[in-house]
Design a protein around this nucleic acid. Structure first.
Lengths: 241, 241
DNA sequence: GTTGATTGGGCTAGTCTCAGACCATTGATG
DNA sequence: CATCAATGGTCTGAGACTAGCCCAATCAAC
């Protein structure tokens, strides 16, 4: 860890790829994270292009790519738009090795470490902040949604729960970082079988996290989140070894 | 915090600006963070362009802009290059308000929150990891460097210390996030007067952080880092109110 | 001195990206 | 059935960005 390591950190690539590639990636993330639910519609092209800070031409190329890949169904005319046709694959341990092989073990460790750091940080910060009633309600509602979720909706609502914690801190940087972290482990999570034991365990941990945040105890919030994520990581390691 | 908030988080701009602007920003960060020390030299253009993932033309435009702004001295020929001429301004509370006004209070809160989350997360993760002797040495060395730093070098070595914690986790994503966080508060820190009381206080906190990490106590490491950053934030608030 | 390696300086042809305008389709509404 | 607002589909000219090439300056080494 000499000076050159720092040079690499700060002078890292300015661009992850061209605008088209990055846009495809973003949209795919929105779809896979369930930010736009299956059957739901992306914002109109003109609007979305502005949000993403790119031209409509480039956005359309990306949408067409996703359409051809079977993620979107694009319909013209009023009340038309780009509709999400993707549904998360039936999870199974068989796919997991393939997913891991695709991303590389280094990237896997990187993503898990990153996620641990930013999500624990978010939980800690949120617990240390003074929350409005509205914020507390949002948090409780997300938890309730997750508790009553069908297997079908579980991953999507789990994502919503985790992202809400970051968003509620009011820091868009932190929200973006958590979204990024979640995306990087998204394929892994989708490949893990959902067993009732694990779901029950996770539900208890979710409750503990919310309780700690609502109680304003940063220490406990961090610990609860840490245990929760460690559980997921352990599950992953279990299926891989 | 409804669904649309999540859309905004995930479907945020793909590009922060054009390649030229982002490159200027990056280089400026490297200079202001002291990743390239005053008098030091940037990597050769061809090499740097590859690292940044941009063309040499664009990089050269950015370098020229920084040269004209007085941050760099560019010399041709063998053993030539782009040398850093910038030295951090003499800090004073007078500038602080201006800096804050430039970035906006929302962005300020965002940056501080983000920094708190990622740096605490990094400290926690690092303390929970099994460290090699080399890593422990690096950490101790950074601490010692900082302890024996002149006022001139203090900010630079302080940055190096904080970034090292993130880098030592082995997660380049986390290192990048911490570098980003540091950059966003960099101007603020430079504007804070360095009083001996505060420096002594900070030194004690730095030692506590390192001790907790070396002891493998994530809980204590997180707490120590949190207190340290909270101290800085409080100092800022103090000068602003 | 001469040489040669290293580095910044500059040019060009081609590709990517954009802003803006206009066209085509759809379907709710009257 | 006719209308019209909303939405995707398409084109064009201009500017940004790139890869690759060669030139010019510098200076340690011989």
């Amino acid at each position: 860890m000499d000076e050159s390591a720092r040079l690499i950190t700060v002078l890292r690539p300015v661009r992850a790829g061209n605008a088209f590639e990055e846009t495809v990636e973003r949209l795919l993330q929105a779809i896979k994270l369930g930010v736009v639910a299956p059957g739901g519609k992306l914002p109109p092209e003109r609007e979305l292009a502005v949000q993403l800070g790119i031209s409509r031409v480039t956005l359309r190329e990306a949408i067409r790519a996703l359409q051809e890949a079977g993620f979107l169904d694009v319909r013209r005319g009023r009340y038309g738009g780009a509709f999400v046709t993707y549904t998360p694959p039936r999870p199974g341990a068989a796919d997991l090795r393939k997913v891991v092989a695709d991303m590389g073990t280094d990237d896997l460790a990187d993503a898990l470490t990153f996620r641990m750091a930013v999500e624990c940080g978010a939980a800690q910060v949120l617990a240390g902040a003074e929350l409005t009633d509205g914020q507390r309600d949002t948090l409780r509602r997300r938890l309730a949604d997750l508790d009553s979720a069908s297997l079908e909706d579980y991953r999507r609502l789990d994502t919503a729960f985790h992202l809400s914690i970051a968003e509620l801190t009011g820091s868009s940087l932190l929200a973006a970082a958590c979204a990024d972290a979640r995306l990087r482990v998204g394929d892994l999570l989708n490949a893990i079988p959902m067993l009732q034991v694990n779901l029950d365990h996770a539900a208890a941990q979710h409750r503990a996290i919310v309780a700690a945040i609502l109680a304003g105890d940063p220490e406990a919030a961090r610990r609860a989140m840490c245990e929760h994520l460690e559980g997921t990581a352990a599950l992953l390691r279990g299926f891989l070894s």
